[in-house]
Design a protein around this nucleic acid. Sequence first.
DNA 1: GATACGACTTGTATTTAATCGT
DNA 2: ACGATTAAATACAAGTCGTATC
Length: 680
Amino acid sequence: PCSLHVHTLYTHRHKDKHKDKELRHKEQKKDKEREKVKHSNSEHREHSDKKHRDKDKVKNFDGSGERHREKQDKDKRREEKVCFLKIRFFSGIVFFVLSSVLNYHLFHKHVVIHLVSGCRWEEERATDGSKWRFLEHKGPVLAPPYEPLPGHVRFFYDGKPMKLSAAAEEVATFFAKMLDHEYTTKDIFRKNFYKDWRKEMTSEEKSKITDLTKCNFTEMSEYFKAQSEARKQMSKEEKLKIREENERILQEYGFCVMDNHKERIGNFRIEPPGLFRGRGDHPKMGMLKRRIRPEDIIINCSKDSKHPKPPQGTRWKEVRHDNKVTWLVSWTENIQGSIKYIMLNPSSRIKGEKDWQKYETARRLKKCVDRLRAQYRDDWKSKEMRIRQRAVALYFIDKLALRAGNEKEEGETADTVGCCSLRVEHIKLYPKMDDQEYVVEFDFLGKDSIRYYNKMPVEKRVFKNLQLFLENKQPEDDLFDRLNTSILNKHLQELMDGLTAKVFRTYNASITLQQQLKELTSPEESIPAKILSYNRANRAVAILCNHQRAPPKTFEKSMQNLQTKIDEKQKQLSTARKQLKGAKTEHKASHGDGSKKMVEVKRKAVQRLEEQLMNLQMQATDREENKQIALGTSKLNYLDPRISVAWVKKWDVPIEKIYNKTQREKFAWAIDMAEEDYEF
DNA sequence: GATACGACTTGTATTTAATCGT
DNA sequence: ACGATTAAATACAAGTCGTATC
């Protein structure tokens, strides 16, 4: 079904190509000019430093249009509009109240500048690559300290109770808490856990505990289960108290001040210690994720801000003032040695702007995608192997929305691949399959070890190339041995400013949504039917991007529940219809006012029931079609929200039906910006 | 050009809160 | 008001991509 869908989704492209033929000519001319200008520019700044390049990049995005004179006017107008909208957007965010008089004055000064000169502070921020001018926050919330188990909860070794030291006990509880999880049955998980657990034991414990299978954690596990049960059974007052405490922490630590605005922080809690749960066949699953202390934490904030205080008797690893980055707090995690960050919520200015920028890049790709496609098709014939590989890979990325596929260190992570890291064993070639020719079968594990399976008929030239790439190779050899993401992205960068492999995913997702919405929405259908159409368009994208989910455990049951509801409605409807008929015949006989009213009442009842039945059926279809497909990821990360906003405005669908509260906050910029006629 | 690192986006799983039917 | 579902929020793992370093 996947390949079918993808195929139908992509048929429109051929149509478009004809339409765009003349346009393409123009585009090519423009691009040539652009390249000339770019070339001379690059000569000019041969010795210019990185800062200069950053400057240009930002300017391009902002649409100041220095390079394209013909576009200057249009861009200027857009820029003005954008600035205006930005003011609206950001003034929509709750202004915070500054306590100190000095800050109060500063604040007003900025607002005045802001209003008088449009988004001047924006430009300031953008030109030197800095992300903010002022940043103040309270630092992270540390994980609560370990609370030793009460005396009656025992750990047994080899059938005998054994008191563990605090350190060893804590790690044991991590395992106990996961006892019901499949993880604890996996060999690697157990091995890694045991190895790290031993490191926490006293020498006495080490000599005594020699075999994990002799360890009995059940009493601990039962205790935690009882605890969580008790939490559920708590009285209202107690629950309220906890909620209030959480709210207080949120108010204190959940917000920061960035450039005159109070912004919500995304994750202000430091990850607590526990056992690492990798996805898929992860070689490090079960390892101990150690507790993060203040001494491990780097704070990032303004020099002139009130620095967050470390807990009494401790100190931060470092306090730095780097406004070239957006994070507030960072620490190094001990499993992969990678850095983790505390950053702002998606509703923040800094994230919203970046998101917007992402879709603008995708829209620029839209303008030149035909040229690009023509180019990679041409490259299939290249004399050079590396160019052919590059072209076929790009074709896959474009057509199948595959990820770039960086190389990963072997043995450090689960064995997953993307386009550039595909291996011979991941594809099969079928010169003929059923009634199709030149079919490629993909079967590999992608991000998060989610399986990608698809059969796609390709053009003869691609097929021949693939045969060539496979020659004299072992199954575990790279399919594209002359290619990696760095080479590919460098090439893409030359084709279009800011273009990388992932832009294709954004572009294809958004353009598909727009096209599907156009195709599926019919003007006369009801609101619920329109929502079904929207979800179907969204689904088309999710299928394209391979956003699968395991069918919910209670799926069948909830489907049945819905069906019984539908049956009930149907019964109600048929009785209501009978009553209407009866009322009608009665009215025919009597022609009285009372009977006439009765007919109306019954008619209304039938109408209402019909509507309710329709809605239920719509819901059922939606749910059934959504069984194995997750819409969230594409909605949040790939679909230009302005397409949805425009659609909602065009058909008078309440926006709450498409975006929940959080999503509306994240997409506030788009909701403010897009009108009914927005075109991606 | 290989490699490591840092910053940031994308993605699924789990936990918590809201909603629904009784 | 209550328990069961369902949706939203959170947690954190796993990608992408640019840059520094050798």
